[in-house]
Simulated scan of single mutants.
Amino acid sequence: MRLQVVARHLNQEKIVFLLTVALVIAFAALLPNFLDRGNLLSLVRSVAVLGVLGLGMLIVVLGRGIDLSLVAIMAISVAWSMQLIHQGLPVYAALALGLVFAVGIAFFTGILVAYAEIPPLFATLAMSTFVYGFGRAHLITGTDVVYMPQNMGWIVGLGQGKLIGIPMPIVIAALAAFVIFLFLRFTKLGSYVYAIGDNLAASRISGISVRPMLVLQYVLAGVIAFVAGVLTATSVEAMNTRIVNSNMIYDVILVVVLGGVGLSGGRGNVRNVIVGTLLIGVLMNGMTIMDIQYTVQNVIKSLILLLAIVIDSVVNPRDEQTGQQGDI
């Protein structure tokens, strides 16, 4: 009876949170200075950009989609902006053009998904390849890495500054999370995102403009990707476009799904992304301190994801109707 009561109150988010707490306790016992304020701030800062990208993915996944082009949009749009500044364009104009590029690509992706009805998985995978190829061939030529110009002014503080001792990437990630929370929780458009993800056909019958809403989801994700790119570039003083070919986009999906956001759409919130991001942050920080090889770290992350999903499936079995909801 007690086990049934516990199972009834557990969900994937709570399970992942408990795993995070367990990891913190274990690392604190095994690793010297793990709980030092400096290390904890470094831990959260290291996954701040991942968390911001996770917020963009959250909006798309809630609407029963997925976006594999987020990292490509982030890297190419910001790298192009910085190259334009090197070529003499004013900082704000260059950043505005980069943002327009990010929004334009995201808008076109939304059109492909909403109006051409191309499955999001294939549409965004193709757009990721296109953005990277087009950017390297026509926008950013002759280099993989575009270094941050010296005349960026106060914008540098977004990646390197501090607010009451807290690194600005953490502050901006928290602010972005709060804004997305307000959008999803208290706006009509946010409720439409959940409704479409929960039941697209019923949403259309009820009068929701489903296709424009799908486009809006991708546009919002594109804007968030640009913000994440600015944070990345100002933090490390460069944008390496090879990040598009890394496994970062899979880490973004990992923190979203790991936290409990359902790929079938309509289930999840900002808190899920935060929990998933913190688990990955704690896990990566601890493994890095222990000098575990990168490939082994990827295997461990995959096993943690699988374990969380299996446990959630056991304590919260899906009924037939839930199991038939949508796909990616």
Rank of each mutant, 00 (worst) to 15 (best):
G54Y: 05
I25F: 12
A106R: 12
E117W: 01
V252K: 13
G161E: 11
V91L: 07
F107Q: 08
N245G: 11
Q87T: 13
I309G: 12
V49I: 03
I85M: 11
L3H: 14
F226W: 09
S206Y: 12
R136K: 15
N272T: 03
K14W: 00
G142P: 06
V270W: 11
S191Q: 15
I118W: 12
G54H: 04
V236F: 05
A93V: 15
L53H: 01
L55K: 01
R204L: 10
S203V: 03
A102K: 07
H9G: 14
V16I: 03
L254T: 13
K188R: 13
R45Y: 13
H138D: 15
N11M: 00
S191R: 15
S235G: 12
Y147E: 09
I73L: 06
A177R: 00
L279K: 03
D67G: 04
S302K: 10
V103F: 09
I111L: 13
L50A: 12
G56P: 08
A7C: 10
L283R: 09
T241A: 08
R271V: 11
N11T: 07
I289V: 06
V113Y: 11
I300Y: 09
V71T: 03
W154K: 05
R45G: 11
V236S: 08
Q297S: 04
A308N: 02
V6I: 08
Q217G: 12
L40M: 09
N272R: 05
I196F: 07
V60R: 09
V273Y: 11
P317F: 04
R2N: 15
G265Y: 06
T322Y: 14
M213A: 11
G286W: 01
G207S: 05
G323H: 00
S203C: 02
I224L: 00
A26H: 06
V49P: 07
L19R: 04
